[in-house]
Amino acid sequence: MWLKKNGLYVLLGVSVILAILGVSTANFIFKSGTAGMGILIILILYAQFKKSAKDTWMILGAFLFSIIGDWFLSNMNGDSLMFVKGIALFFLAHVGYLLYALFNGRIKGMFTVILLAAYLVFFFLVLYPTFTDVPLMIASLVYLLISCFSLGAAMGMEGDRTAKGSFILGIVLIIFSDTIIAFKEFVDYHMFDFLITPTYYLAHIFITFSLIKRFESKVPATK
Rank of each mutant, 00 (worst) to 15 (best):
K108A: 13
P198C: 08
S80G: 00
M76N: 14
L18Y: 02
S150Q: 00
M82I: 02
W2D: 10
L45S: 03
K5W: 08
L18V: 01
L169H: 02
L40H: 05
S166E: 14
L21M: 15
W71D: 02
A101R: 04
A26S: 15
G78H: 04
F149E: 00
A19S: 15
K4H: 11
Q48P: 04
G13L: 08
L211D: 06
G109H: 12
L21E: 05
T162A: 13
L125M: 13
V14G: 10
T222D: 15
N6Y: 11
F72R: 03
L145N: 06
A62E: 04
I68F: 06
K218A: 11
G61N: 08
Y46G: 03
L81K: 13
F111Y: 15
I175K: 05
K184L: 09
R106G: 11
K218R: 13
P220Q: 09
T162E: 14
G36V: 00
L125H: 09
V187E: 10
D160W: 03
M37I: 15
M137W: 06
I207M: 12
Y201M: 12
A26K: 15
M110K: 14
L173E: 05
P220R: 09
G78E: 07
L73Y: 03
I59K: 04
T25V: 01
L98S: 02
K51V: 11
F176M: 08
M137S: 08
L136F: 10
L202E: 01
T130V: 10
E158D: 11
F63R: 05
E185A: 10
I168W: 01
I44V: 13
D79M: 08
I42D: 03
S24I: 08
Q48Y: 08
P220Y: 08
G38V: 02
L64Q: 05
L120A: 10
A163F: 07
A19R: 01
P135Q: 07
V113K: 09
I107C: 06
I205T: 07
T197C: 03
F176Q: 01
G36D: 03
D188K: 14
